[in-house]
């Protein structure tokens, strides 16, 4: 991956001035590259990884992974139906997969009832959806390469030769 992207993927808040120092490029050229990535849609968004289990004010929320089997539509394949599904705001992620089912969705809602309602009345009701299997998430350990649990500081000497 491009070095600037690698750095941004680790820390979205890092300033172009710092990236310039890390990569040995000029600030202007770093800014230009980032702008181009943003314009081309390579950089979609700058976001924060949050461990929602620790967010206190959240009254309740539920996450589920849903396997969806579909009948592909003539000429447009899976993309057409996938778009109809991922356009629902409840759908946080959507992947097309090889294997025994076609789409994998990550759904977020306030309650089990809400997720159940979405599956029953929205998803299963679509003419091209042949079947769904819903798995409720119990705990998230790692997201995008980041372990969510805060790790203890490792014991290392303060100074050594």
């Amino acid at each position: 991956m491009n070095e600037i992207l690698e750095i941004l993927a680790q820390d979205a808040r890092i300033r172009p001035e710092e990236i310039a120092k890390l990569t040995g490029q000029s600030v202007a050229s770093v800014k230009k590259v980032i702008e181009k990535f943003e314009k081309d849609g390579v950089i979609v968004k700058y976001k924060t990884v949050i461990n929602k289990d620790l967010v206190k004010e959240e009254t309740s929320f539920v996450r589920a992974l849903i396997e969806v089997s579909m009948t592909p539509k003539k000429d447009v394949g899976f993309d057409y139906i996938a778009e109809r599904i991922y356009s629902f705001p409840e759908v946080k992620s959507c992947y097309l997969l090889s294997g025994s089912y076609d789409l994998l969705l990550e759904i977020e809602g306030n309650s089990v009832q809400m997720v159940a309602g979405f599956v029953a009345s929205k998803l299963s009701a679509m003419p091209d959806v042949r079947g769904t299997v819903t798995h409720f998430l119990l705990k998230k350990y790692k997201e995008d390469g980041h372990v969510l649990k805060k790790r203890k500081q490792k014991q290392k000497l303060n100074i050594s030769y």
Partner: peptide
């Protein structure tokens, strides 16, 4: 000097001769 540093807490150390990775 080493003993002084080894016994101090809450310092930023740039004195370490080993990788910071695990």
């Amino acid at each position: 000097f080493f003993d002084l540093v080894l016994n101090m807490k809450d310092i930023i150390s740039l004195g370490v001769g080993e990788p910071d990775f695990v």
